[in-house]
Design a protein around this nucleic acid. Structure first.
Lengths: 137, 137
DNA sequence: CCTAATCTCTCTAGCGGCTATAGGTTCAAG
DNA sequence: CTTGAACCTATAGCCGCTAGAGAGATTAGG
């Protein structure tokens, strides 16, 4: 049996965050000692590791809740799990594309200025004027 | 003179967001009509466009505040503006790298499963077990 | 000039995903 | 049995908005 602190050290999820997940219904309410402290077993540990990993991959609490509910019904089709993964990957891809454009744009803006007084600084000017941008963002 | 709604339409910044920026001290408190409604001039419009554009580029409110203060002192050196742009670009770059790893990882996870029942679905399994991951994330 | 429709005002609360603090209780090592 | 670390609940705060209520201002048409 692990205390919440043990669980935290083993999973890397901070103690208040574990309590938060419980409150959000992501993990079942843990058993308690006589003195009202939470105690976890191996199942609780695995469940939290799953959540931790999915969060690291950027999945939202909602998506994780869906996946967790799926895994409680092993005889159901798993098309939904595929869909969630696919959708999330598409979203990540879109974010990468967007960030790439921003990076390019900022790089361009940085290079525009070789003055050393704010008055002639083209960085601030370029930030002020979207019209100077090369592409969309 | 523009009403807050005019300003909103011209800049694409929503009305409550404009009021929020004012409250945060990003834009100066606008002049008011006798009936207490905000009225803006061309300066206000430009200032808000600047903020909008910088936000689009992903700069934080804090960074924008810094840049805005810089641009109020045209005779000062503009090294700070360069620093802000550079730091922000580095951060974007780091985010891209991280997202790229996530994308690869998710792609790998997706391909692991060709079952159609949750019980054998390796997507959920792979999410549960960080040890199955190829790299860092 | 009056009315009706559309803005606009302030204030407050909510979003996601935590994080921090306060003030109290329980556990485990010595 | 004592101490000190870990735990408990409850509440508030973070960012960057967004939404809603309820009241007042402005403007176009008749």
């Amino acid at each position: 049996m692990f205390s919440i602190g043990d669980l935290s050290r083993r999973t890397g999820v901070k103690v208040p965050t574990i309590r938060y997940y419980e409150q959000m219904g992501l993990i079942a309410a843990a058993g308690r000692t006589e003195g009202n402290q939470r105690r976890y077993d191996r199942d609780g540990l695995e469940r939290l590791s799953f959540i931790r990993h999915a969060r690291d991959l950027g999945l939202s609490i909602e998506a994780i809740r869906e996946l967790a509910e799926l895994s409680a019904h092993p005889e159901e089709p798993c098309a939904d799990a595929h869909r969630i993964a696919r959708e999330h990957r598409a979203e990540i891809h879109a974010r990468i594309e967007r960030l790439r454009r921003l990076e390019a744009e900022l790089g361009r803006i940085e290079q525009m200025c070789d003055a050393d007084r704010v008055g002639e600084c083209r960085i601030i000017e370029a930030l002020a004027d979207h019209g100077l941008c090369s592409g969309e963002h």
